[in-house]
Amino acid sequence: MDSKRSPERAQPVAGGEGRRAPVPVKIVIAGGFGVGKTTTVGAISEITPLTTEAVMTSVAAEIDRTGAVPEKTTTTVALDLGCITIDPSLKLYLFGTPGQDRFGFMWPDLSLGALGALVICDTRRLDSCYPAIDYFEKIELPFVVALNLFDGTLAHDLADVRWALAIREQIPVITFDARDRLSVRDALLAVLHHARDVSSGKERARPRPAPIRTGDSRPSLRIAASDHPYRR
């Protein structure tokens, strides 16, 4: 009944003194299991990372195909949530989410309106970040690939990683240490710098050249972006 209402803009909220809500912005932290998403969020968040859960709705059930278990219409996924107050009027949220495509039902919610995304990769299990990269490429959300230096050493050359991921040369590939606050800060700054470049039109190379794919090194994502309900 009320669904046509226009979104409230930055207007003072009833209540006044000290209860004015900051404008929220967000960055998505994506990557496979165990690549350090929770550590990353925890390293920089000013609150202890909260974990919240989401359940697939029957609407999303069509997108998150449950395949061999047709009766299954609920999937639970845990999200890591952190925040950084930029100033009283602006608050940055960090959402850490599993990158597996079976959690894809949350991705439209997470990425709609995000400034950008940090895709954390473990070079020993590079394939775990393919779905996230595929998705962010498809919805054209600026993202940076960050290699978590688990033991301070990089197992592969950055150029090799870039080649294996088949990403455009404009997309930064960086290394960072998820346990280190300043390192995480710099990784987020890399995302923001990239997002700013994209937004300010420095990088509007469209139609963009098809990335060079080597065989089927990047299996396609099961979720068709055109299927998702927020796609305009």
Partner: peptide, 25 residues
Amino acid sequence: VLRPEVGLASDVETIEKVIRGLQAI
């Protein structure tokens, strides 16, 4: 409710504000 404005995410000024805020950390 205060909802994020449409287009906020691609607003260069907002991004730079966040950059400055992070650099202060």
